[in-house]
Design a protein around this nucleic acid. Structure first.
Length: 490
RNA sequence: GCCUCGCUAGCUCAGUUGGCAGAGCAGCUGACUCUUAAUCAGCGGGUCCAAGGUUCGAGUCCUUGGCGGGGCACCA
């Protein structure tokens, strides 16, 4: 055990000897630091002045001590709450009872105070305390006051420390919550209903991904953690709920990267009687709106790259982007396969459409920096999408790209049960052993009852938060990202 | 799974050619009633990720392993 912890335990015992509980309880009528600062803005306070106590000038406040400066019988401390930092002042004269406890305070302790506003000789807004209550003694020291906690592993494993030590980290998660609130507001305005569908699924579907498996003991039944809520949400359309959405935690048993976490959040929504054009409108409303209203600008830096969220966003055909950036039409399969061989792809194991899409990912996607809708995908890689009536080789699907990342994926939903049954049966080669085309007989039966034509959309919420907060890693926008070696089996 | 970089005090980091383990912050003691990364004086603090190996001698070199970052593969 470190000396610092030993010292703090000794102080805790001294505090108990003073008859004070070092782990306090309910502390009522607290005004947030930011609100206290806002209230002070309305008052005239001279430097060096402490105002007379009164309902406009006296506040109760609480938070964690992040800095302190002690001058014999005078103490300043910087106290942090969820809204920001505020300086508290304590003098032995003003807090006669609390002074003994104040001298035993450490950085990281959580305190509650009552005090009166004033300014120091240097003009700093200060809450001059008339009482001090220790609400929680910290036994472990906080990170270094200037650099905070910078060790990446420590920030993920002990996020609670990161959150109180690094305000910019806390701000990311506050913004994440506001972005999600904003999405809900957009959808409610459009008449959508929030629903919840199974995480434990007997058949996984709705995406191309390897699932996590688990087992229900009493039913003696193998189950999958969902890779997508899609097939259940579309059952809701059959049932007549017509406009539904879900913030879906999805689980995919695949690699981890700065853009991939094994569990991640997808906003998925379905709108009966609409199509994928309506879904483009929703994307723009949500993401450009959140940039404007949550972040406060439509031009946001991501690293060195400025991204312009100003709408409308370009809507480019897949076939045209392919020809432009690859250099020949996607229908020229000989050239497509030739190029794939040059890129050392195992093209002989892939169907044509899979090779085409591999070239698209290699040549086109890296060019898509500002928000771009790529529309009308080759039909064979779209098993859940309605075919274009004008050209059944293409499907009415778009993907939204921002900063080279796929952010959204949307279809005019396939609602012909016969076509759906057929696409479930035609497994594509080159898409891995376990693709989205797992036959879900109950889902096809649902379509046979009649599903209205609909637009459907999935948006990667973690990635949207990354973009809007300038976070380089998905782990910086997930509170507790998966880390190796924490369980009893390790 | 593969490649690569990293792991030194509570935190942030130095550590030369293989030759006594260092600094700042934090902590402890003392001074100090207007500081704000407070200041000044003094003091304490190490499983150098782990285990082997080479060597008279390893934080440093070698091997294996652990954990993490980045890249590839997979994928959204």
């Amino acid at each position: 055990m470190s000396d610092q912890i030993t010292d703090r335990i000794a102080k805790l015992e001294k505090i108990r000897e003073l008859g004070v509980d070092p782990y306090g309880s309910r502390f009522t009528d607290v005004t947030a630091n930011a609100a206290i600062a806002a209230a002070a803005e309305k008052l005239t306070i001279e430097s060096g002045q402490i105002l007379d106590a009164g309902p406009e000038t006296t506040f109760r406040a609480a938070g964690r001590v992040t800095l302190h400066r002690i001058f014999g019988n005078l103490m300043f401390m910087t106290v942090r709450d969820r809204t920001g930092d505020l300086q508290f002042g304590l003098s032995k004269k003003m807090v006669t009872e609390g002074w003994k406890v104040a001298k035993l305070l450490d950085l990281g302790d959580i305190v509650g105070v009552e005090g009166t506003l004033g300014r120091t000789k240097t003009g700093e807004l200060t809450l001059w305390c008339t009482s001090l209550t220790l609400l929680s003694k910290a036994l472990r020291p906080p990170p270094e006051k200037f650099h905070g906690l910078t060790d990446v592993e420590a920030r993920y494993r002990r996020r609670y420390v990161d959150l109180f030590a690094n305000p910019e980290s806390r701000d990311v998660f506050i913004k994440r919550a506001k972005i999600i609130d904003y999405a809900r507001a957009v959808l409610h305005r459009r008449g959508f209903l929030e629903v919840e569908t199974p995480v434990l699924q007997p058949i996984y579907g709705g995406a191309a991904a390897r699932p996590f498996t688990t087992h229900h003991n009493t039913l003696d039944m193998d189950l999958f953690l969902r890779i997508s809520p899609e097939l259940y949400l579309k059952r809701c359309l059959v049932g007549g709920l017509e406009r539904v959405y879900e913030f879906s935690r999805n689980f995919r048993n695949e690699g981890i990267s700065p853009r991939h976490n094994p569990e991640f959040t997808l906003l998925e929504l379905y709108q009966a009687y609409g199509d994928y054009h309506d879904m483009m409108d929703v994307c723009e409303d949500f993401i450009a709106g959140a940039a404007r209203d949550v972040i406060g600008t439509n031009k946001i830096m991501f690293g060195d790259q400025e991204i312009d969220y100003t709408t409308p966003w370009p809507r480019m055909k897949y076939v045209d982007l392919f020809a432009e950036h690859v250099g020949f039409p996607l229908t020229d399969i000989a050239k497509v396969r030739q190029r794939a061989r040059e890129l050392k792809l195992e093209e002989t194991k892939m169907d044509d459409a899979v090779v085409v899409n591999a070239l698209f990912e290699h040549h086109v996607e890296p060019k898509l920096v500002n928000p771009t809708f790529v529309i009308d995908y080759p039909a064979p890689i779209c098993p859940l999408t309605k075919r274009d009536p004008a050209d059944p080789n293409f499907a009415l699907r778009f993907e939204l790209f921002i900063n080279r990342m796929e952010i959204g994926n949307a279809y005019s939903e396939l609602n012909d049960p016969a076509v759906q049954r057929e696409t479930f049966s035609n497994q594509l080669r080159g898409e891995g052993d376990e693709t989205m085309a797992v036959m879900d007989e109950d889902y096809v039966e649902a379509l046979e009852y009649g599903m209205p034509p609909a637009g459907g959309l999935g948006i990667g919420i973690d990635r949207v938060v990354m973009l809007l907060t300038g976070s380089k890693s998905i782990r910086d926008v997930i509170l507790f990202p998966l880390q190796r070696g924490q369980g009893p089996g390790t």
